[in-house]
């Protein structure tokens, strides 16, 4: 990849970041995967997000049955922190615009 292209990417991302302060919020999505145990996913939701056991279980089942669940909503930086944390736990997580 050339330097010119990298610079373009960066400035584009910077624009996106500025926009995100005024635009609709972002969400953290956790996706179903064939590896992670249901009990583990639920336990991660409880421990990391501080959800009750019932709420953690509900979100885990959403992931399992629907293939994905929104587990957090907020500004882009916060959602990036959550996604990084989820990747640390080995969960398959991504960020998207709330209305996307």
């Amino acid at each position: 990849m050339t330097h010119t292209l990298s610079d373009t990417d960066l400035s584009r991302s910077a624009e996106l970041r500025d926009e995100s302060a005024l635009a609709s919020p972002w969400v953290t999505i956790v996706w179903n995967d064939p590896v992670n145990l249901m009990s583990y996913v639920s336990f991660v939701f409880r421990s990391y997000f501080g959800f009750s056991r019932g709420e953690a279980e509900r979100l885990m089942l959403l992931v399992h049955n629907d293939g994905r669940a929104v587990v957090a909503t907020g500004n882009r930086e916060e959602m990036e922190r959550h996604v990084e944390a989820m990747h640390g736990y080995g969960l398959w997580a991504s960020i998207a615009k709330a209305d996307a």
């Binding site: 584009r12 996106l16 990036e80 990747h87 080995g90 398959w92 997580a93 998207a96």
Partner: peptide, 13 residues
């Protein structure tokens, strides 16, 4: 898989 795409539809991001 250990370091998955954080933005599913945006390779640059």
């Amino acid at each position: 898989r250990l370091f998955p795409d954080a933005y599913r539809d945006d390779a640059a991001a």
